[in-house]
């Protein structure tokens, strides 16, 4: 190989050229050493830290996948259960006040992703902030966040979180209204409550967003709502 070819081969991969090939080429030997040192530095720099629990979050989402199908795509027992749930919610109308569609969807979503309520990963501020910033929100939670993921919430790409409030799991959906004109109607501006046999929920509107909370104990909703007032700053 001539000098030019060796030089090119070194830049393509410094390890691909043997010491014998560079025996009488001190300049190229030095170039090889420099490029190998550069590669070592690059390898260190490229190997950025991987978020803890990423593998577990991937597997959790995969296990939840079959449950994310539409009810009419499921076997008969699931469709029957879905119909029963809708009936129960219908007969509980007096408990509800406001956007029943939103409440029903929130409850269905929680039931479909029950594994999220059992998530134990503790996400850092660095994990959470970029997700909120995509929605034009600055968030700084004083409580642990166990789960955070963008989900399809009734056709709107929304943020689904599970917060740890005094050891109990509270689900928070942040639904950007600006992503779907008409999602937030004038009657939805007022806070709304909903419930079923197991969960209690409430929805409030903040500028362009709907914040939907779901918890097993109603007192957790008030505590979480007060905490969110101080933790979230809405830019849009």
């Amino acid at each position: 190989m001539d000098k030019l070819s060796l030089r090119r081969a070194l830049y393509e991969d410094p390890r691909s050229v043997s010491a014998e090939e560079l025996l009488d080429q001190p300049q190229l030997q030095q170039l090889q050493q420099e490029l190998q040192a550069l590669d070592d530095n690059l390898r260190q720099q490229l190997a950025i830290e991987v978020p803890p629990q990423l593998v577990e979050r991937v597997l959790l989402n995969q296990r939840m996948l079959p449950m994310q199908k539409r009810w009419y795509q499921r076997p008969l027992p699931y469709a029957t259960a879905a119909a029963l749930l809708v009936s129960v919610l219908y007969w509980q109308q007096p408990l509800q006040n406001g956007p029943t569609d939103l409440g029903q969807h929130a409850l269905s979503h929680v039931y479909h992703e029950m594994a999220a309520l059992r998530a134990e990963a503790l996400l850092s501020q660095a994990d959470i902030s970029p997700m909120f910033s995509q929605l034009g929100i600055h968030a700084e939670f004083p409580v642990p966040v166990r789960y955070a993921r963008f989900c399809d919430f009734d056709g709107v790409r929304s943020l689904h979180l599970v917060l740890d409030i005094d050891g109990a799991a509270v689900t928070l959906f942040v639904v950007p209204g600006s992503a779907q004109p008409g999602l937030i109607t004038p009657e939805q501006i007022e806070p709304a409550q909903f419930a079923d046999a197991r969960f209690f929920g409430q929805a409030v509107t903040k500028l362009q967003h709907r914040l939907v909370l779901v918890a097993e104990q109603p007192q957790l909703l008030a505590a979480t709502s007060a905490m969110l007032e101080k933790s979230l700053r809405f830019n849009i």
Binding site: P51, R57, V58, Q62, A126, M131, Q134
Partner: peptide
């Protein structure tokens, strides 16, 4: 990093 995580989730699903 946040988009990278979304990409990994979408890829593996």
């Amino acid at each position: 990093k946040s988009i990278a995580e979304d990409l990994v989730q979408d890829t593996l699903l």
